[in-house]
Design a protein around this nucleic acid. Structure first.
Lengths: 114, 114
DNA sequence: CGGTATCCAAGAAGATACTG
DNA sequence: CAGTATCTTCTTGGATACCG
């Protein structure tokens, strides 16, 4: 989902969705944004709930590779790592907001009760 | 991707991406929109290019189930089936437009040459 | 605390052939 | 024309255990 390897990106829409379409990506970006654009690994893990460390790390690495988030490591013990949105990542927030609003509306229409 | 089964939708963002995050969904909706909101199965297939009929049909069915597109069958031989966006689907167009623009910008930044 | 490593299950997508 | 059916492959995601 994060690599731009040989298989061609046929259009900008595909390109974009490859970057933000992963299972937790949009939510992660949203959570970071909502917390004043700084969020630690552990906080993120707790907020997402059912995510394995492997998945979380992998997702964060992909977002980083795609220049959507920054990863800042503090050289201390115990370790501390902070994630924040890049400028590019920030540019996606209005869209996430829009989509989230759309989603909420649909969920209500369907009387979604999960 | 299309069913709202037991696994809970943890938030609206996830809900939305489940519905439009499939490999071809966003593009299909965009293509339909661009063609004055009416597109036949065969046209769609040609526009997408590398998609098997199975995948195309499956994707269209999911979009239909999620009330994002309409499927209109003409009772004639040879068959004719037209797909169009529903009101709900239409509401996503501005979002797709913006995300596409964002994607194009990123692609240029990276000198993407696919 | 913030991860890795390994192995395995589930689901999405492709190839290919056929049909009303 | 607009699909189905079947089988296979590929990609994602999860379980579990361990590490600096």
């Amino acid at each position: 989902m994060a690599k731009n390897n040989s298989d061609e990106v046929v259009c900008a829409l595909d390109y974009a969705f490859r970057r933000i379409g992963g299972k937790h990506k949009a939510r992660i970006m949203w959570y970071i944004f909502k917390k004043n654009n700084v969020l630690r690994y552990g906080e993120l893990k707790r907020m997402i709930g059912n995510i394995t460390p492997k998945m979380l790390t992998q997702t964060l690495r992909e977002l980083e590779e795609d220049k959507l988030i920054n990863r800042k490591v503090y050289a201390q013990v115990p370790p501390k790592v902070e994630y924040s949105l890049t400028q590019t990542g920030m540019e996606l927030i209005p869209f996430l907001d829009h989509v989230g609003a759309w989603g909420r509306k649909q969920m209500e229409k369907e009387n979604y009760t999960a």
